[in-house]
């Protein structure tokens, strides 16, 4: 029997064999990614409510899209998301690259330290969100305690204050994901051959010139790639923030994805939230594509 199969396979072209190998994956992808995507797009043009079974589904055209884009609260959530992304990416790029530069030096315990720094990344975002609520506790939390060590602020309520809450999620995301940018930057730094620095040293370049002329251009493509991954992730950020602040206080930390989830599965406005989801998808897809183009240009420079 197996011999028969082998003989059969022998008669097939390379292309046919390739198709045989990828077909199961393609089918799976079609079933759980592509089909729902198109289903969602089709629903976004209807007034479908997932909790009202039996109600007639009516084609409403672009009405849902107009409603989403005309809503002030949607634009507010977009702004909150943009703010969150801007600060997390900026801080993670700076600290990540800084840590990578430090860890790239050869010293004792360097590998142990790398492992320790990378640990937060390994945790589940929901767990991180939950235990940071304890760290942020204004009365007994470690965060408040440490801040008061430097200056007598009194109890700091990071999650309860609408001014501080957006920063609370920025801090937690930075704590958790800076190791990721660091790791990728470190890979970039390790790829720079020593002899370039030796040449620069003999050419009497200062440390700063060596950084600008050799280190930065070599590591930049890596850093941009890390930021692309982080940007896409943080645009969709949900679990950590829900556990930490549940979008509160008020809607101070309600990111677009959290609002979307509420519209879809608390208010059950399925058609409307499908339109919202499609808009978010197109946004991140567009930004992602532009970013990749720019990144490739920098890499080819």
């Amino acid at each position: 029997m197996s011999k028969k199969l082998i003989n059969k396979a022998r008669g097939l072209s390379d292309k046919a064999i390739a198709w045989i190998f990828i077909t199961p994956t393609v089918l799976l992808l079609l079933a759980i990614n592509i089909y729902p995507l198109f289903y969602a797009i089709s629903m976004s043009f209807t007034n479908f409510y997932a909790n009202k079974i039996g109600k007639e589904i009516k084609w409403v055209g672009l009405k849902n899209y107009i409603k989403v884009l005309g809503k002030e609260s949607v634009w507010e959530r977009m702004q909150i998301t943009a703010n969150f992304m801007f600060w997390t990416l900026l801080i993670q790029a700076l600290i990540g690259l800084g840590l990578a530069l430090l860890l790239n030096k050869k010293f004792k315990g360097n590998e142990l330290l790398t492992t320790l720094i990378v640990l937060p990344m390994m945790l589940s975002p929901a767990v991180v969100g939950t235990f940071w609520t304890y760290l942020y506790n204004p009365q007994v939390g470690v965060f408040s305690y440490i801040m008061n060590f430097f200056y007598n602020f009194g109890p700091i309520d990071m999650i309860g204050s609408s001014v501080l809450a957006p920063w609370s999620i920025v801090i937690v995301d930075t704590w958790m994901w800076t190791p990721f940018t660091m790791l990728i930057c470190l890979a970039g730094l390790r790829s720079i051959p020593d002899y370039l620095y030796e040449a620069a040293e003999v050419d009497r370049a200062s440390r700063w010139q060596q950084f600008i002329y050799i280190t930065l251009p070599s590591v930049l493509p890596f850093l941009l790639l890390a930021l692309l991954f982080r940007g896409i992730e943080n645009f969709k950020m949900f679990d950590m923030v829900v556990e930490l602040t549940s979008g509160g206080p008020g809607s101070a930390t309600e990111l677009a994805s959290i609002q979307l989830k509420r519209e879809a599965f608390e208010k059950w406005k399925t058609g409307y939230s499908s339109a919202y989801a499609v808009i978010l998808f197109v946004t991140i897809f567009g930004f992602g594509n532009v970013y990749v183009k720019v990144m490739n240009k920098i890499k080819d420079r």
Binding site: E198, A199, R204, Y213
Partner: peptide, 27 residues
Amino acid sequence: SYVFQQYSLYPHYSVYDNLAFPLRSPL
């Protein structure tokens, strides 16, 4: 000044900048 066996050119810069690099030293 050192001519390395493995060239050691600065890969992100033009030939001009490579040649000018030692002249731009703060020293």
